[in-house]
Computed example of a mutant assay.
Amino acid sequence: MQNWDDLRLFLAVAREESLSGAGKVLRLDPATLGRRMARLEADLGKALFVKSPQGYALTAEGTDMLERAAAAERAMLAVRRPASGTAEGLSGQIRIGAPDGCANFVLPQVCAALARENPALDIQIVALPRVFNLSRREADMAIGVSAPTAGRLVVRQITDYTLHLAASERYLAQAGGIASVADLRDHPMVGYIPDMIFDRELDYLADLGAGRVRLASNSVAVQMNMIRQGGGVGVVHDFCLPFAPGVRRILRDTVSLRRAFYLIRHADDARTPRLSRFADALVAGLRAEVARLQVLDA
């Protein structure tokens, strides 16, 4: 049985995937941390990491160790925070992983409200255009645009949202009207970098038969700013439009896409009252905020 300090250091290295990153979190010298990990592996008689210039990647034994160490961490936190699940409010730190559209335009308002209601709660939003690995504890919970079917996960649909083609009023005044989908061939398209689309649900332009993407980014926020600057036509979330004056939807009756957000949690966390209370509040807030923003743009 390993002591808690060993597990704490191991968790940091596993989550940060490097000694330098874990050292910053723990405020420890990376060389010291490397010696501690080597000693841990020697004590266990197994390799927990594959070391390379790119960092520390978990072996199969390391992944198994991560699951058990994370379970020990949750038990430790439950003992240290006996009041965090009471009516007095939530406390501690909770990290949410989310695609950047949700992270930029919806989550800030919802999390700000939750923080005001729970002064002892610290909320972290990690905005990354990729799928989060909850087994590696990159986040306590994640928001996704599709429901994963593998892994020990609990998935809950949060809300549907809609997307439409849009362009800036300045661009439309210069380039002329767009009366049909066929007209899009004569206009530069703004969208995702094709080989960086991390979920099939985000391949909007393929569904429209669009070809070349003249201006591309892996970030929804960057795409929106490209459209605002008159870069061309792109598919945008309706909930983003209240933040983009001068951008308006086109072909509204012809092109309308519907997608959904899902809350994804590790199965073990479903038994943690503190995280479950936060998840319920988060889902309620996201549903209300998406509905509010889409009404504002109607």
Rank of each mutant, 00 (worst) to 15 (best):
M1H: 12
F10W: 09
S18T: 02
S18I: 00
L19C: 00
A22E: 00
P30N: 00
A31T: 00
G34F: 00
G34R: 14
R35D: 01
R36P: 07
L48F: 05
V50W: 10
S52N: 06
A60L: 10
G62Q: 13
G62S: 09
G62E: 10
D64R: 14
A71S: 15
R74W: 12
R74T: 12
A75G: 11
A78Q: 12
A87N: 03
A87G: 03
L90R: 11
S91P: 09
Q93R: 11
I94E: 10
R95E: 12
G97V: 10
A98S: 06
N104F: 10
N104Y: 09
L107I: 01
C111T: 03
L114H: 14
L114Q: 05
R116H: 07
A120P: 01
A120G: 04
D122K: 03
A127R: 08
R136Y: 06
A142R: 15
V145F: 06
A150Q: 14
T159F: 01
Y161R: 01
L165C: 13
L165V: 08
A166M: 02
A175C: 08
A175M: 06
A179F: 07
S180Q: 10
R185E: 10
D186H: 03
H187Q: 09
H187W: 11
P188K: 04
D195R: 07
D195P: 04
M196Q: 10
F198D: 09
E201I: 11
L202S: 13
D203K: 07
D203Y: 09
Y204S: 11
L208T: 06
A210R: 13
R214V: 02
V220W: 05
A221K: 11
H237D: 08
G246S: 06
I250W: 05
T254N: 10
R259M: 03
D269L: 01
A270N: 11
R277P: 04
F278Y: 09
G285E: 04
G285K: 04
L286E: 02
A298H: 13
